[in-house]
Amino acid sequence: MIGQMVTDEYGAFTIPDEVLKLIQLEEDLQKEGETLDTIGFRPIVTECAYSITPIDVIPFAYTGGDGVHFGFLTDFGKVGNLNDASIVCVSPTNDPPIRLIASTLQEFLRMATSVPHVGLLEECWQWNDREMVDGILEEWRSDDYQSKRNRIFNRVREIYNTEEIDVVKHIQLANEERNSKIILPTYDGLGILSIDNENGEKRYQFNTDRSQDEEELARMRAFLSVATTAEKLGFIRDATFWYILAHDYHNEVLNLIREILQSLQLKDELKRLEVRDL
Results as ranks from 00 to 15, higher is better:
W140F: 11
D56S: 07
N199P: 00
V118L: 11
F13W: 07
I2E: 00
E18I: 02
D8F: 14
D209L: 12
Q205Y: 02
I257S: 01
A85K: 01
E274Q: 12
R272P: 01
C48M: 10
K202A: 10
E9N: 09
M5E: 12
M132P: 01
D196P: 10
R221Q: 06
K202T: 03
I171F: 02
A49N: 00
V156P: 03
D209Y: 15
A85R: 01
G64V: 02
D143Y: 13
V68Y: 01
W242F: 15
W125T: 15
H250A: 13
Q106W: 03
N199K: 09
R141G: 13
E231S: 07
I101T: 01
Q205N: 07
R155D: 06
A85I: 02
F41Y: 02
G200R: 14
R258D: 00
S91L: 08
T74A: 11
V156I: 00
D17H: 04
I244Y: 14
R276E: 15
P43V: 02
E231F: 04
Q126T: 08
R141L: 07
I236G: 03
N128M: 06
H69I: 03
G3R: 12
T162G: 07
D134L: 14
T38E: 10
Q265F: 15
D238G: 12
I98F: 05
L120W: 10
V156D: 01
L193Q: 15
W125L: 14
I257R: 03
T93H: 06
